[in-house]
Computed example of a mutant assay.
Amino acid sequence: MNVFIVGGTGTLGRQIVRRALDEGHQVHCLVRSPAKATFLREWGATLLQGNLCYPESIVDALKYCGASVIIDAATTRPTDTLTIEAVDWQGKVNLIQAAQAADIQHFIFFSIMGAQDYPHVPLMQIKQCTEDFLRESGLNYTILRPSGFFQGIIGQYAIPILENHSIWVMGESTAIAYMDTQDVAKFAVRCLDRAATYGQAFDLAGPEAWTADQIIKLCENLSGQEAKITRLPIGVLRATRQLTQWFQWTWNISDRLAFTEVIASGTSLNAPMEEVYRVFDLDPTETLTLEAYLQEYFTRILRKLKELDYEKVKQKKASRKRSPFKSTP
């Protein structure tokens, strides 16, 4: 199948590209900078330069590649110069309208679990509005709503513990059913040959929901190091968000801080998955657990750290032997 993927350079998007190629699909990726996406070309994808903020570039790319399916995994990053509204709302409107004009047969969109419950959080509100716009577009659509990715846990918990830095925990600990992006990609690519997913929205939850304290404990056990935890009340988070709203260059940070309130609310982000696995014909026992993911990560990192330490010791010993200033008895 000829697939048009948006957001292919992202944490999730690259896994979708890899999975689609591995399963024999023809993949075209809309990218802002082909130079930064050469790895996708090396995998076998065709790169088409374009930008969600420029509707004509989307129209031209779809016309060129002749794709029948769109998988949209794009979103703004906190460091982007473009705002969440520009990319995650107006950009998605542009993409959906281009899909209508190109007579796309199936549009697969990534939202967020529980978006409808947080209308005061900009990213959640925009995701919900985009879902509504897609439903009203007349396109065959599938909406996938993951709650969070294992990959985000590394920077938030694992690395600070290894580097003896503080982990910031805010508000009441929320249990989140994270998933590995490779498993999320399975669902996205499986949509390509599942007409049963048309017109449906699916929450995607991992095998178990984890609170921040549970994740920290797991990381401590696997790393053999004690975490430094700094707990902040939700009021401090809200005050910081209000401050960042005053400056245009911190708008994205402000919006992301608002999203942090979701994971500090104490309301679990989890969902039953039995029916979802049945519809997608996937085996739940093959879904990676957080324990296995972090075990592999810490084993690999700690082994590398030991190797680096061993090399440093060898270099120091060699340096002492070669030193011309070494004293003689």
Rank of each mutant, 00 (worst) to 15 (best):
Y198K: 01
A185E: 06
A205S: 00
R256D: 00
V184Y: 12
T230H: 12
I234T: 14
L257D: 08
D281L: 10
L222K: 01
D283E: 07
Q245I: 03
I234G: 09
V279R: 03
G266Y: 00
E261N: 08
N252R: 14
D183G: 05
L218G: 07
R256K: 02
E208Q: 14
F202E: 12
Q248K: 14
D213I: 05
R256A: 01
S223F: 13
F259I: 06
Q245E: 14
I253D: 04
L204N: 01
R278C: 02
A188C: 11
D255F: 02
C219D: 06
T240M: 09
I216S: 00
R231Q: 03
N221D: 14
V184K: 12
G266E: 01
V276M: 01
D213S: 15
L269K: 11
K186A: 09
E274T: 07
W210K: 03
Q182D: 06
G199K: 09
E275F: 02
T267V: 14
R231P: 00
E208K: 15
A201G: 13
I229Y: 06
T285R: 14
A195Q: 02
I216F: 00
D203E: 03
T197Y: 08
Q200V: 01
Y198T: 02
Q242H: 05
I215Y: 04
A195D: 01
G199E: 13
V184P: 04
K217N: 07
T197V: 13
E286K: 15
L222A: 02
E274R: 04
R278K: 12
L222C: 03
G206Y: 15
L192C: 03
T181R: 09
N270D: 09
V184W: 08
E261Y: 06
R278M: 00
K217I: 03
C191D: 04
L204F: 01
A188K: 05
L269A: 06
R238L: 04
W249R: 15
A258R: 14
E226I: 06
T240I: 06
A196I: 05
L192N: 01
T197L: 08
Q182C: 07
I253L: 14
L288Y: 11
A212N: 13
S223D: 06
Q200N: 01
E286V: 07
Q214E: 13
R194L: 14
Q242W: 07
R238Q: 06
Q182G: 05
L243Y: 10
R238K: 08
R194N: 11
V262R: 13
P272F: 04
V279D: 05
A209I: 02
T260N: 15
R190T: 02
G235Y: 13
A201S: 15
A201Y: 05
D183A: 15
N221E: 15
T250M: 05
F187I: 08
T240R: 12
A195S: 02
W251L: 11
W251I: 09
D255N: 12
T285D: 12
Q225V: 06
L288W: 10
D183K: 12
A195V: 03
R256W: 01
A239H: 09
M273Q: 14
S268H: 07
T240N: 11
